[in-house]
Design a protein around this nucleic acid. Structure first.
Length: 420
RNA sequence: CGGGGUGUAGUAUACCGGUAGUACGGCUGCUUUGGGAGCAGUUAGACCGAGUUCGAUUCUCGGCACCCCGACCA
């Protein structure tokens, strides 16, 4: 992509109506545009990040047998009445049409997916099934905040699984947890599996996947020796207490952001909709269901919270909108500039042929200083500089490094492809 | 929803009860070019409503929006 054609605009100053790091940097860099509190539009750069995160999630969900679908966002009132949530669930956006018919906008999709899946299930032989979607969710939050971390409209992966009995659910629950850890690991994040309340879903505990960050809005207690981690909402222990699991470590308290969660829904929704399958004994049975969420747009915010410096974002390669940022620097001499232009164009072409996602700063009316500053702000993993000074070589620098190396085009491409 | 804060140009800000100023950005021209260039010209602004006043961007009241803390949070 040529930067001269890229639909975006960077801001030199941080917008005054954002204080959170992720919001400031993403707005300044032209990744997103704020429409109102908690509602952002995604510009080309930001959309590429969302797509990259989505793709990683998609691959890991597919790997455990999830099947992608896309469900309706506009829901008839009746399905929410069946679960007793109409006029009860305060985050549910409810609306009335001009003919007086009432609707809800999806804030979660159990009410849609349960009848949808069960219409296709007759017997235990049809189970288990796990469907997921990556789609927008709408929640009437009293206070949305912290940029992408808590929006009223946000992109979420929600998977729903259906099982013939508890043992099969328990098996899949473990598989899904491991898949989740893989997703976060691929994104460069360390997520702690945290015991938490099941909310209005279930009496059982649920598991939240927490990434430590001061921008988060949950407090957790975790053991410094083992994997024990619990949301303070349900913790019976206090900070500094001995770990109840390993009895060796001490519990530390930290602020965290919930990037995923998994719930054992039991038979709640099967019962709500009175949808059954025939089990191995020929008896009608309600399915055991599970619900598995990952906040895609929130993850984008959390990544920025974890990966930035005072100059801008430092995207991990797995979610970066482009792998490389090729800068052509122009100077005084026309003859030099012609050479730079030619060299940069040809390297740009070479990178594209090699399949490298590259943003090419081909603008001729920008000074080197401005190009460097913007490159740091946008935070693409590799910076490749072509200038009169670099002669027939290319200056290669990782965004996370301070030193650059002078390499030939061939070496640059090779080292760069290796490390990708 | 409780508490606190802020609303002035695309962005960041200043001053003021009497013609709203600066920087950056945008546009034109010339000069520049390795860490957000210089000069000249130019473009563009008081959240909304009511009140007080000869006159309100400024004072008062009401609304709305945004940010922060908390509560809430499938």
């Amino acid at each position: 992509m040529r930067q001269s054609k890229l639909f975006t605009r960077v801001l030199r100053d941080a917008p005054k109506d954002e204080e959170t790091v992720n919001a400031m940097l993403l707005v300044r860099g032209g990744f997103v545009d704020k429409l109102m509190a908690g509602v952002y539009s995604y510009l080309p750069l930001g959309l590429r990040v969302l797509k990259n995160i989505s793709q990683i999630v998609r691959e890991e969900m597919d790997a455990i047998g999830g099947q992608e679908v896309l469900m309706a966002m506009l829901h008839p009132k009746e399905i929410w009445e069946k679960t007793g949530q109409w006029k009860k669930l305060d985050v549910l956006f409810e609306l009335e049409s001009r003919t007086g018919k009432e609707y809800a906008i999806g804030q979660s999709e159990e009410e849609v997916v349960t009848p949808l899946v069960m219409r296709r299930i007759d017997t235990y032989k049809d189970l288990p099934v796990a469907t997921y979607q990556i789609h927008w969710k709408f929640r009437d939050e009293l206070r949305s905040k912290s940029g992408l971390l808590r929006g009223r409209e946000f992109l979420m992966k929600d998977m729903y699984s259906f099982h013939e009995h508890q043992a099969d659910f328990d098996r899949f629950y473990e598989v899904a947890k491991q898949a989740y850890l893989k997703v976060f690991d691929r994104l460069g994040l360390v997520a702690k599996v945290t015991e938490a309340s099941g909310g209005s879903f279930t009496e059982k505990i649920s598991y939240e996947f927490m990434v430590l960050t001061d921008a988060g809005e949950d407090d957790i207690l975790y053991c410094d020796q083992c994997e024990f981690c619990v949301n303070v909402d349900i913790a019976k222990q206090k900070e500094g207490a001995t770990c109840p699991k390993c009895s060796r470590g001490k519990l530390s308290k930290a602020r965290a952001s919930e990037v995923g969660n998994v719930f054992d829904l039991g038979q709640k929704y099967g019962k709500n909709f009175d949808l059954t399958f025939v089990d191995r004994d020929g008896q009608k049975q309600y399915p055991i269901m599970g619900c598995f969420g990952i906040g895609i747009s929130r993850l984008m915010g959390v990544i920025v919270e974890k990966y930035h410096d005072d100059k801008g974002i430092i995207w991990p390669e797995s979610s970066a909108p482009f792998a490389a940022h090729l800068l052509a620097l122009y100077g005084r001499e026309d003859s030099d500039n012609n050479e730079v232009r030619e060299k940069a164009e040809s390297f740009y072409e070479k990178l594209q042929k090699a399949g490298v996602a590259v943003l090419f700063d081909d603008r001729e009316d920008k000074t080197p200083g401005e190009k460097f500053a913007e490159a740091d702000l946008l935070g693409l993993p590799w910076r490749l500089v072509v200038s009169a000074r670099s002669k027939d070589k290319i200056e290669v620098k990782r965004r996370s490094d301070t030193e650059s190396r002078l390499l030939t085009g061939h070496e640059a491409l090779a080292s760069f492809m290796d490390k990708q």
